[in-house]
Simulated scan of single mutants.
Amino acid sequence: MATWWFVSISSVIHPFDSSGENLNKIVEIGNSDYTMASKLSAKELLAELLEFAEELGTTPTRAQMDEREPYSSTPYYTEFGSGNTALEAAGLVTNHDNSIPKNELIRALQKLADKSDRLPRF
């Protein structure tokens, strides 16, 4: 997985570089694992996902995918729109059920607001 270095963009890019060439080099270096994985087709990504699930003996979590080299979960989210969609496309059982009905969420938020005497905050 790529190592990220956080630096001020102004310390890396010359202020008069309007071509964006230096910025493209930074992005390419910082996203090397994503760049490599993004070259894979959806079919190849699913094959990698199935291989990883077989190694684990269970459906991988996002955290496990992010720890695995050379690919993280990012290409799967980019290609399939969500982790669950990628897992479903691979024929794997999803880890989370994100289909809580809206009325249940509203009731839970109202209960929390009543209990804490204020509106819930994120």
Rank of each mutant, 00 (worst) to 15 (best):
1 M>W: 02
2 A>Q: 08
3 T>M: 09
3 T>Y: 06
3 T>N: 05
4 W>Y: 08
5 W>G: 00
6 F>R: 14
6 F>Y: 11
10 S>E: 13
11 S>L: 06
12 V>F: 06
13 I>F: 02
15 P>L: 05
16 F>S: 10
17 D>P: 05
19 S>C: 06
20 G>P: 03
20 G>M: 10
21 E>I: 06
22 N>K: 15
23 L>F: 13
24 N>C: 09
24 N>W: 10
24 N>V: 09
24 N>L: 13
24 N>R: 15
25 K>Y: 09
25 K>W: 08
25 K>R: 15
25 K>F: 07
26 I>Y: 13
29 I>V: 14
36 M>T: 12
37 A>E: 09
37 A>C: 15
37 A>T: 05
38 S>M: 12
39 K>M: 14
40 L>V: 04
43 K>P: 00
43 K>M: 08
44 E>L: 04
46 L>F: 07
47 A>V: 09
47 A>K: 15
48 E>F: 08
49 L>E: 06
49 L>H: 09
49 L>K: 05
51 E>S: 13
51 E>V: 00
52 F>M: 10
52 F>W: 05
54 E>C: 01
55 E>H: 11
55 E>L: 09
56 L>K: 14
58 T>I: 00
58 T>K: 15
59 T>N: 03
59 T>I: 07
59 T>C: 02
59 T>G: 03
59 T>K: 02
60 P>R: 02
62 R>C: 01
64 Q>T: 01
66 D>S: 02
67 E>R: 07
68 R>V: 00
68 R>C: 02
69 E>Q: 09
71 Y>G: 00
71 Y>H: 05
71 Y>F: 13
72 S>P: 00
72 S>E: 03
73 S>E: 02
73 S>F: 03
76 Y>R: 03
79 E>K: 15
80 F>Q: 04
80 F>Y: 13
81 G>C: 10
81 G>V: 04
82 S>L: 04
83 G>A: 01
83 G>R: 01
83 G>P: 00
85 T>N: 14
86 A>T: 03
86 A>V: 01
86 A>P: 02
86 A>F: 06
86 A>K: 02
87 L>N: 03
87 L>S: 05
88 E>W: 01
88 E>A: 12
89 A>G: 01
90 A>T: 04
90 A>M: 07
91 G>Q: 09
92 L>G: 03
93 V>S: 13
93 V>C: 04
93 V>A: 14
94 T>R: 14
95 N>A: 07
98 N>S: 10
99 S>T: 12
100 I>Q: 12
100 I>L: 13
100 I>T: 15
100 I>K: 15
102 K>S: 08
102 K>W: 05
102 K>T: 06
102 K>L: 10
103 N>I: 04
104 E>T: 05
106 I>N: 06
106 I>Y: 08
107 R>G: 01
107 R>H: 09
108 A>S: 13
109 L>R: 13
110 Q>V: 06
110 Q>K: 13
111 K>S: 10
111 K>L: 10
111 K>A: 14
112 L>N: 09
113 A>P: 02
116 S>Y: 13
117 D>F: 07
120 P>Q: 11
120 P>K: 06
122 F>M: 10
122 F>S: 11
